[in-house]
């Protein structure tokens, strides 16, 4: 088990290296010049050339890559062109709101989606099942930004139950913190509720046909007990897999949601950095995201062995 974890962590190094090189080259190949953005609309060609020189953008690309990579190995992500700050500092500043948003989204998703899926599976073929499935299709089809604006219109502008946008850190108190997160979290969680409810239903439904479910009923257990104790645990592996993939996909959703609700997180930072052609920041954010992605995958794999005693590493 320990050996497995170490192996997997070592295996992340080449993955992150490849991601780093790929992102670096892609950014250099995309049109747009950070120097031009920094110089502004009225920047003269001479100013732009000076900025390019100062940022080191005139060096040949392999040289730039070499400098960036050696800094990276020392844990230095470089200086943001746009925000004029250490990228590391910038990311640390922005990571809080994103983690908060992702966590609340995940909690809402799990407490809604899993019971919904179990109920649909148990009442398979009834109108409740069909209702859950219909919601699932709808939830899956509606784009995050459309849903976000609808919710803002209904609950922030019409009923005035929640703030339109913004973010309050936990340090300002628990209630303001949650109050500001409710709408963005719901917006972001709908698609995951749809996805995970569907997977839960499908995998519980499959388990309900297993022989040991019949054994459990033959023992005189109540249906709720059979569902929660026997069916759910056995159905858990695919559900957890999809939750894991969901967390990874959340990264994309966070970008849109943070923009709609004006939350100063990593998603917004990404958007701003891309618009400003802020190479060091984009590179750093993507490396952080891919590290999180790899880490989540490892956690999912480890959770399998907790859920199913037949799986051992």
């Amino acid at each position: 088990m320990f050996g497995f974890i170490v192996n997997r962590l070592i295996a992340t190094i080449p993955v992150l290296g490849m991601v780093a090189i790929f992102v670096f080259l892609m950014l250099r190949l995309t049109p747009g010049d950070p120097a031009a953005v920094l110089a502004g609309d009225n920047g003269t060609p001479q100013q732009i050339a000076e900025i390019r020189e100062a940022l080191g953008l005139n060096e040949p690309i392999p040289v730039q890559l070499g400098i960036w990579f050696s800094n990276l190995l020392q844990g230095d992500f470089g200086q943001s062109y746009f925000f004029k700050k250490d990228v590391t500092e910038l990311i640390l500043l922005r990571v809080g709101p994103t983690v908060a948003l992702a966590t609340t989204t995940l909690i809402i998703t799990i407490i809604v989606a899993i019971p919904l899926g179990i109920i649909a599976a148990y009442l398979h073929g009834t109108w409740i099942d069909r209702g859950v499935m219909a919601f699932s299709v709808a939830g899956f089809s509606i784009p995050v930004f459309v849903l976000g604006y609808i919710l803002v219109y209904l609950f922030a502008l019409e009923i005035k139950l929640f703030p339109v946008q913004g973010y309050k850190p936990l340090a300002d108190g628990f209630w303001p913190f949650i109050h500001h997160l409710v709408l963005p979290s719901i917006t972001l969680s709908v698609i995951y509720i749809a996805l995970i409810a569907r997977i839960t239903r499908a995998s519980v439904l499959e388990i309900l046909n297993e022989d040991y479910i019949r054994t459990a009923y033959a023992k005189g257990l109540k249906p709720t007990k059979v569902l929660m104790k026997h069916a759910l645990r056995n159905a858990a592996v695919p559900i957890v897999t999809v939750i894991g993939i969901g967390i990874a996909l959340l990264i994309g959703g966070v970008v849109v949601t943070e923009s709609v609700f004006n939350i100063p997180g990593l998603g917004r930072l990404t958007v701003d950095a891309v618009l400003g052609r802020d190479y060091p920041t984009i590179q750093a954010v993507i490396i952080v995201f891919s590290f999180v992605y790899v880490l989540i995958n490892l956690l999912i794999d480890l959770s399998y062995s907790l859920l199913d005693p037949r799986i051992r590493y």
């Binding site: 022989d211 040991y212 033959a218 005189g220 005693p309 037949r310």
Partner: peptide
Amino acid sequence: RELRGARMSMIFQEPMTALNPTM
């Protein structure tokens, strides 16, 4: 439910699948 498992019980065919693999 009270009777099942207590007064009457059943053994099933498949020894591989009739027991819950996660317990």
